[in-house]
């Protein structure tokens, strides 16, 4: 399958890329890893007239710690996230999630920025970023702006990014001591999108009382979903069988999965509850280590 004809540019600076995006408007698309966009172009679901390849732009592929914030460049490949010692130190959830995103070859190309900018509730990073309370940095002709993750996902393939804006960085607050995180998705086979996926980050104080909770759900809602009632069910309380069951129940009630080849709506809700329970246990286990 071959895409419809288009023009290709590989600018060497961010400013140049932004001015091209401004010039070509709706006819242009950013190309990062290309592992969502090129398949869509081959199927002719996407027919951009211009592809602006940002892979040649320097300083977009870092993982660093600055002033209590972990900063991940948009062009960082999944394989780099999977093996980053800095991310392993603070966020074991990234090793969980990257291992479940497609396969090694896809992870050598796919970028975390592209995964979020694609705006697909089936992708796995959105739920993780919700659980971690990330901030998205977008750069356009008016400079940089920060977008809270809760404001970022607008609908099917729709995000808060404006035409002419490039997602340049993801910023995640460094978690306090006593924090643990975990992600799992149910998939039919390697490379499949989630039947249901759950991301959890919890902080417990020295008495075992939950002081912060983040829950994100994958592919069980038209947009990536924060399970707010599940978070509230835990904060200020101890993690007991009862509070866990409550958090699981709320998540399974508040999502809105559709029945499809991966399972019925009822099955997916049941799996959300199971995964919430398991990921809470896993996050807590990681705190005690």
């Amino acid at each position: 399958m071959i895409a419809q004809s288009f023009q290709y540019a590989s600018p060497g600076t961010l400013a140049e890329a932004i001015s091209m995006l401004d010039k070509y408007g709706e006819d242009a698309k950013v190309l990062s890893g290309g592992h969502s966009l090129i398949p869509m172009m081959k199927l002719r679901f996407a027919n951009p007239e211009w592809l602006i390849d940002i892979n040649g732009i320097p300083n977009l592929a870092h993982i660093k710690e600055e002033g209590g914030v972990i900063k991940i460049g948009a062009l960082t490949r999944e394989a780099e996230i999977e093996h980053s010692d800095l991310l392993k130190k603070y966020f074991p959830i990234f090793a969980d999630v990257t291992k479940l995103i497609a396969d090694p070859q896809v992870r050598n190309r796919g970028t975390v920025g592209g995964n979020l900018a694609h705006g697909d509730a089936a992708n796995d990073h959105p739920a993780v970023m919700l659980a971690l309370n990330a901030t998205i940095v977008a750069t356009g002709s008016n400079g940089e702006r920060s977008i809270a993750i809760d404001e970022f996902f607008h609908g099917f393939y729709m995000t808060a990014l404006e035409h002419g804006e490039i997602l340049t960085e993801i910023q995640i607050p460094e978690p306090p001591a006593g924090t643990g995180s975990a992600y799992h998705k149910l998939e039919r086979k390697v490379g499949d999108y989630a039947t249901a996926g759950v991301a959890v980050q919890l902080t417990l104080d020295s008495k075992g009382v939950c002081t912060a909770a983040g829950f994100g759900l994958t592919n069980v809602n038209p947009v990536p979903l924060r399970a707010s009632r599940s978070e509230k069910a835990l904060v200020g309380k101890s993690i007991t069988d009862e509070t866990i069951a409550e958090a699981a129940k709320y998540a399974s009630e508040d999502c809105s999965p559709s029945s499809d080849l991966r399972g019925s709506e009822e099955y997916k809700r049941a799996m959300v509850a199971v995964l919430v329970k398991r990921m809470i246990h896993k996050a807590v286990e990681r705190i005690s280590k």
Partner: peptide, 11 residues
């Protein structure tokens, strides 16, 4: 290692 059916030659 990458899948060359999903990379443009120009890349």
């Amino acid at each position: 290692s990458v899948k060359s059916c999903t990379i443009l030659a120009v890349q």
